[in-house]
Amino acid sequence: MTQIEQDKNAPDTVMSDYNFAYLDEQTKRMIRRAILKSLAIPGYQVPFASREMPMPYGWGTGGVQVSAAVLTPDDTLKVIDQGADDTTNAVSIRRFFEKTAGVAVTEATAEASIIQTRHRIPEAELREDQVLVYQVPIPEPLRFLEPSEVETRKMHELEEYGLMHVKLYEDIAQHGAIATAYAYPVKVEGRYVMDPSPIPKFDNPKLEMAAIQLFGAGREQRIYALPPHTQVVSLDFEDYPFEASKADHPCGLCGAEDSYLDELIVDDEGGRLFMCSDTDYCAARQAVGHRGSDASPTLEGVA
């Protein structure tokens, strides 16, 4: 069968010139094999032959390739950037999969079977039947301490993570606290030090969850994973324990005290509003009547 004939039989997606979920089958197999290895060796970065995607490197090409390899026609996809479904890059990626895979999409965390995210873990607890796909810019947690890939690979091989501890310790010596606020390094099952992607450290405790977590770094050609309930420990010191912090405010819209907040400048005087970064979490709370001090009196106003 020639390629042209195969294309005619392509699934009835809107973008029928391309294969289901855009990638060709051989590429998907290559990515799928890497995903299986990454699940078998939690926290280890599996090299994969990342393809050039029709979107720029650094804009989620790793996450998009992982999602494309994992998606089935029955999936419901949610895409968030900074916790929000309506940020432009999240919209763009969601549209890409609507077009190329024809899958259902949602903004409701609970309704999604696959969630692709950049920089956040949703507030709602994820379930065993869900998959969380992270977009990762720099997968190597040691990269900013040691620019050479040859060297960092050796460090992982020898489990030689002293450099990272020295860095964190220097922070404490200098600032009295660990000065890493996001992409806070973790140790997986007592073996690999892993970069959880640039999520705020507030999200780190959620990394131990029931859902499958897959991390895709397109430009850096790495895939890594956390199977459900994998032990994930944020690096710290006995006398300086890890602390998941957030702005010390309730959400101005829904009043939540337990969610990560965005800070907005709302007037020329520099007045501030704090609101949930997870837009679905916030909307769902407002829908059942929760109100913060800055909320509009009627829900219709927040459409």
Binding site: A10, P11, N19, F20, E25, K28, R29, T72, P73
Partner: peptide
């Protein structure tokens, strides 16, 4: 239907 069958199988 390789793209779809393989997708379900892989999951």
């Amino acid at each position: 239907d390789a793209p779809k069958d393989a997708a379900f199988a892989f999951r």
